[in-house]
Amino acid sequence: MTRLSAAFAKGRPALVTFVTGGDPTPADTAAILDALVEGGADVIELGMPFTDPMADGPAIQLANLRALGAGTKTADILAIAAAFRARHPEVPLVLMGYANPMTIRGADWFAAECAKAGVDGVICVDIPPEEDAELGPALRAAGVSLIRLATPTTDAARLPAVLEGSSGFLYYVSVAGITGMQQAAQASIEEAVARLKASSTIPVAVGFGVRTPDQAAAIARVADGVVVGSALVDLVAKHGQAAAGPVRELTAALSQAVHQSRQTLQEQTA
């Protein structure tokens, strides 16, 4: 069992958390990642900053600019990942970002560096299944999961192509839009997750617009995992180098809500 599959096999929904690497500086990221783990996150997504994050809303756009402004390089992100792996041998770590920084030195180089740093999976926003050759084969050969995104516009005809060659988990983007904006209606999430799980053998995690423990718990009742990003990134923006404490607190509240969501439901219905 891989670290990623183990994270979704704990008999309860998983909390997946995102922060941007190098925000506010590369030296501060380790403490923020540790706070996520201490707060109870099951999977860590580490954002690779990019100058042109066109799928992200204002919160993560600004995080990208802060990280790049602090001089964050790809080498820093890989070093942050390797150091995280040494401190937390069991916690799955996923790199999330855009195609150009991932492929500029060649996909084989990137995949090998990910494997060397102990990265479990990669989410690339702007490489759809149609362009899989750009990155997918290199990741699979290196034993790194390619985690694909499914969206409200991914219809039944496309879904098999999205699932083909992906592993780890399927990231369901619950709204057609950018990160950190409105949340999708609960009913639409339930319908979508049911549809995805009918076709998929890998876990389904739901994200985009999830900010509070209550929202996270509602989604956790129907999905295998819940992804929270912008709300945590907002705390880093607000508290800067002192962000670890507030990040730990919010993560603890989120993980408690997610981990106990079905238990609560069962108690309520009992």
């Binding site: 702007d126 759809p128 750009e134 995104l149 991914t154 496309r158």
Partner: peptide, 18 residues
């Protein structure tokens, strides 16, 4: 597939792909 030799293509988020 929208490629001009090694260039071009469709590098967009899944939401836009359909």
């Amino acid at each position: 597939r929208g490629h001009f030799g090694p260039f071009g293509g469709r590098y967009v988020a899944e939401t836009l792909m359909p």
